[in-house]
Structure formats: structure tokens, C-alpha cells
Design a protein around this nucleic acid. Structure first.
Lengths: 231, 231
DNA sequence: ACAATAGTGTCTGTGAGACAGTATCGA
DNA sequence: TCGATACTGTCTCACAGACACTATTGT
């Protein structure tokens, strides 16, 4: 009977497919850890110690294991490569060109994380790569070598930040627990890449924050109130 | 010397990893082909003929081959499962829970395509599954069984359509070459899930379209002009 | 003439953008 | 008092929302 044949065929197909006889791409996650430091948007990078792309900048990444979800692999990568736990992250996009890694077929799922710079303690990753904070807009505007398709991934993340800054409160993930409005506005201006008007900015964020009872002090000008994010 | 050891170690790691000894997830694409028919948003589905989820609705999908990009696999899936070529599509999101498919570990990259209903000619797919057009909002509002995590994928696509309809001209991909403004408005209303004001709608789309020199005829009311999308 | 749908003119409210002004610190 | 930065009041203008009106067909 045709029906039984079909079931059998599917089972055979699956057995063959999932067996080692059937070649599969590797699955990895590449991670963009963004922060703001010295008035610039930065991203955690590693410098390639081996060929291919030896000496180029690259993004930290890990392979997705068989017993962890892709999200969990991203979390693990953020922990192993940047030493960070419990920070905001989201999936960006999946990059699947055949030759994006000349060594082997790798499909890579890009994630981005946002973290206040105070939390970052760069340390040597498990694979002994030295991690750095790289100026995002500078590297994208330059011709400097970036490994694999990681320039495209960084552009993708940069664009996601810009658009979500306009429509969501994602920017607060880059702020410390307490912050002044001039500090917050500066971060928004960095993410959006343009100056904002103080009065208008304050109107827009007013409903997102709650004031604390203390202020800056010691500066030769009017003190600034500290606020908290009203999640 | 430590440096040489490290290079060697990486090479060993890669050889081991890319060899068949190292288990990898399978990589698939799942495809949402959306269209508008009879005043409703519909999606191309198949009905599962085998366990698991026998009898449930499912999305068409294909495995990603070693020598095709993920985008190309999506294109192939759209061609093989829905018989469509050269239509608008975009990557949606990647689903990577460990147990999303009980048979084996599959990481699935979801794509959505938009096509005017005139182009759709449902036919039996390569794997003899019967394809249907399913009412999206109806199925999402019901408790009907949907295979794997495909309900979540459909929700993801539904939401993407809604948000991109507001900010882009994506809706035109659902229109035939020529269309009237009442027809276009109806499609926008379906995608957005709410009624729009005629005058305001026309102002908004005015710059996106160019008029043709012909009109509807035969109806017992004022004729309507046909327009084209000004890409 | 009438029903039915296509298409237009215009008022209003909201909110972003712009700017000018006031407030409060240290020196 | 002055320089510097924090903070606020308010005008304007563009645009979405709302509604009322006119236009053109077949019966």
C-alpha cells in the first residue's frame, strides 16, 4: 500500500538524515556585546591569532552544542567570552552564506547584548583570545580588516540599536542603576548619531524614569538629579 | 613553544569538529507564504501525514544543503512547496530550542514570503503533502493543533507583517500589478487588523503609487481608478 | 431618482522640533 | 559677580485622525 510505503520512506529518510552519513552545516552563534565608553559606542571584539584572517578583528562566538538551545549557547558565549551574566540580549539575524567561513560550512546566528560599561571586565577568553573594546562607528567607517562576514554582522547590530532606540527603551540597558538626565541624553545621542533637544528629550523619557532623592555634587554648576529606570 | 601548540590545537579542534565524529544539529528553513484571499490573511500550510503531530497543520520546510546558502534554501523551499518563483521574502527569526522537534535536533530558520493570491497555484509538494491556505488570525485564535513550534513561528510572522505594514511598503507585495485604492486599503486593513479612514489612507499612499489610464467598469456605482506601485 | 461606492476638502488635536528663558552650583 | 551646566515654558508646524461633503456609475 502506497501510504505505508510513504511512512516507511519518511522514516528511512529521517534515519539517514540524522545519521552521521548525512553531512550537516555547523551551527554557531556570534555575539555583539555593545557598551558605551568615553562617549562612543563600543563592541567587544577579539583579535584573530590564527589563519584565516590572522590579525583581523573578529566577534566572539561559540558552537551550538547538541543539548543546549541556541539562546542558551548565546548566553554561554556571553559568559565565556565577555565574563558577563544576566544582561540584556536578543537575537539579531542568521548568516548562512556557504563560504562565509573558508574552513568549513558554518551557519551563524548573531546575537547582540547591551551592558553598562561598569559591568565589563575584559578578560582572556577560554581560547586565550585577547578581548578588546572596539569603537563601532570608527571601525565601520574604516577599511580595517574584519574577519569572516563580521563587518556585516556589526552593521546589522548597529542598525538594530539605532532603530530600537527610537521605538523602545532599549537604551536603558546601557545605563548604570542610577543616572542623570544629561548622561542619559548623551547615550541616546550616541546611539542615534545625532544631537537632541534637551527639553524635548526630557518630555519623551519622563514617563520611563523615576527620580531619586540625591543629586550630583562638586561640579562648578547646578547639580543634576539622579534617576532610575522605571522598568 | 606555546604559540605553535595553540595553532595546532585549533587545527585539531576544527578537524575534529568538522569531522563526522562531532555531532551537529540539523539546519532547516521553515516557510510562511502569506497571501490575502477573500478578505483574510492566509498562509500556506501542509497537513502532517505522519507522526509526530499526525493530522496537525504544519509549515512547509526543507533542510539546508551543504552547498546552498540559507537564503537559497528558503528560495528552494518556496519553489518546491508552493510552486512560486521570484517573490518577496525575508528572514524572520531562528528557532533553536533543543526539543522543538522530538525526532531529532533541528535548528530552524524561519522565512516569510508575501505573494498576491493570483500567483498561488497550490499543488502537491515533492513529499506528497497536500498544501492548503489557512486563515492566519482564525488559526491563531483557535486551539487547533499546530505541529512543532509552528504556532510560535506563525505568530512571529503575523507580528512582523503588522509592524512592517506600518513602517514600510511591504503590503504592495500582496497586490497584483494593478489595483484600485479601495482594494489596497482593504489589504492594509486586513494586515493591520483595523479600519482606516479613506481620506487619510489615500494621503499616505499617494506618493507610493502612480495612476494608470483605466478604471473599473460594470459596477452600479462610480468607477475606481487602477494604480500601480511606484517601486 | 436612487442606491452604492469612489473620491476630496478641511477642521482639530497631538506631538516633535526649535528656541528662549530661568535656576543653581563653585570659584 | 561670573562661567558653566541643569532645567523649564511655550511657540510652531507637520501630520494623523475624524468627519462631512461631492462625484459617477447602473438600475
Amino acid at each position: 500500500m502506497a501510504k505505508k510505503d510513504k511512512i516507511k520512506a519518511e522514516q528511512e529518510f529521517l534515519k539517514t538524515y540524522s545519521s552521521e552519513a548525512f553531512e550537516k552545516p555547523s551551527v554557531a552563534v556570534d555575539i555583539l556585546v555593545f557598551t558605551v565608553e568615553d562617549g562612543r559606542l563600543k563592541v567587544v571584539t577579539v583579535r584573530r591569532q590564527e589563519y584565516p584572517f590572522k590579525g583581523d578583528l573578529a566577534l566572539p562566538g561559540v558552537f551550538v552544542g547538541m543539548s543546549e538551545s541556541v539562546d542558551d549557547a548565546a548566553k554561554r558565549g556571553i559568559r565565556e567570552e565577555a565574563g558577563l551574566e544576566d544582561i540584556y540580549f536578543e537575537q539579531l539575524y542568521t548568516f548562512g552564506e556557504v563560504d562565509r567561513d573558508p574552513r568549513m560550512r558554518v551557519v551563524s546566528i548573531a546575537y547582540m547584548a547591551l551592558v553598562p560599561v561598569e559591568k565589563i571586565h575584559l578578560r582572556t577568553g577560554l581560547r586565550s583570545e585577547k578581548t578588546e573594546l572596539t569603537d563601532v562607528d570608527e571601525i565601520l567607517g574604516s577599511k580595517e580588516g574584519i574577519a569572516f562576514d563580521h563587518r556585516q554582522i556589526i552593521e546589522c547590530g548597529r542598525e538594530r540599536i539605532r532603530s530600537k532606540t527610537e521605538t523602545t527603551s532599549i537604551a536603558f540597558n546601557l545605563m548604570p542603576e542610577e543616572f542623570t538626565l544629561p548622561e542619559l541624553q548623551k547615550v541616546y545621542e550616541i546611539l542615534l548619531g545625532k544631537k537632541l533637544y534637551k527639553a524635548n528629550f526630557r518630555k519623551k523619557v519622563a514617563e520611563l524614569i523615576s527620580e531619586t532623592d540625591h543629586m550630583t555634587s562638586g561640579d562648578a554648576h547646578r547639580p543634576s538629579r539622579y534617576y532610575k529606570f522605571k522598568g
